[in-house]
Amino acid sequence: MTFDPVTAGWKQRHGQGPFTRIVGPVWVRREEDGSSTYGLLAEERHTNSRGVVHGGMLMTFADHMLGWLVWDAVERRACATISLNNQFIGAVKPGDWMEMRGRIVRQTRSIIFVQGEAKVGERVVLASEGIWKVLGVD
């Protein structure tokens, strides 16, 4: 049986650009503490030649999720990824429901450092850390 995000209480993340609409949909769930968890249902179209989700797709998911975390933290001002490092820890297969959470490690006026972790169930599949620049702020 395939996971259905709608019946599980997830909402599709709106405001996605054209690229995200191609690789998504990406889902969001607001947590009791006010933070967000993001979800993606892995599909066959996300896979590589070995039949597991392509590393580029995992990095795309991390870039979007951490970027939204930053965007919310800077009151929805424009920002851009400066650096994104990823460690591929486990495979994701079509039909897997992947969830990702992140946190801000350090924030200056114009630079934000973040970390995130993606899981399938309790199994960590990706660890990410990145740096974002708030645009228009020196």
Score class of each variant (00 low, 15 high):
G9K: 07
T37C: 15
A127Y: 00
G56L: 05
L58R: 06
T81A: 12
E31W: 11
G116T: 00
K11I: 13
I112M: 02
S49N: 12
V92H: 03
G39V: 15
E44N: 14
W132Y: 12
P18F: 08
E75S: 06
F3A: 13
W68L: 06
W68Q: 07
H46S: 10
A8Y: 10
R109S: 04
G130W: 01
V23G: 08
I111M: 04
D72L: 06
M98H: 01
F61K: 03
M65A: 12
P94K: 00
K119Y: 05
T2Q: 13
H54F: 11
T7C: 10
T81I: 10
D63Q: 06
I104K: 00
M65N: 10
S110G: 01
L69F: 08
A62W: 06
I89E: 04
D33N: 15
M65Y: 08
A118G: 02
S83I: 08
N86P: 00
R123H: 02
Y38A: 11
G90R: 03
T108R: 03
V28W: 13
S35E: 15
L41Y: 13
T20F: 11
T60V: 05
L135P: 05
R77K: 07
D138R: 10
A127T: 04
A62N: 08
V125R: 00
G95N: 02
W10Q: 14
A80N: 05
E43T: 12
V134K: 03
N85R: 11
A42W: 10
T7V: 12
S35M: 13
T108E: 01
P18R: 08
R76L: 07
I89C: 01
V134C: 04
F19L: 09
G95V: 03
R76W: 08
T81D: 09
G17D: 08
L135G: 03
W71P: 01
R50T: 14
G51M: 12
T81N: 07
T7W: 09
V6N: 13
W97H: 05
L126R: 01
G51F: 11
R50W: 12
A118N: 00
A73F: 03
S110K: 00
D72M: 04
N86Q: 04
L66K: 00
P94A: 01
R21F: 14
M98A: 02
G55P: 05
D33G: 14
H64Y: 07
W10G: 14
V124Y: 06
G24M: 08
D63M: 07
H64R: 03
F88M: 04
P25A: 15
D96Y: 02
A73M: 03
I22S: 13
E117H: 03
V6K: 15
L69Y: 07
S83R: 11
R13F: 10
G17R: 07
H64A: 04
T7G: 08
D72R: 06
G34A: 09
S110R: 01
I111L: 01
L41F: 12
R21E: 15
A8M: 11
L58H: 05
D33W: 15
W132K: 01
T7H: 10
G9M: 09
I89W: 00
Y38M: 11
M1E: 15
E44T: 15
E32Y: 11
T20S: 12
R45M: 13
G15H: 09
G51S: 11
T81K: 07
F61D: 04
L41D: 14
A73L: 04
V120C: 05
S35W: 13
E43I: 09
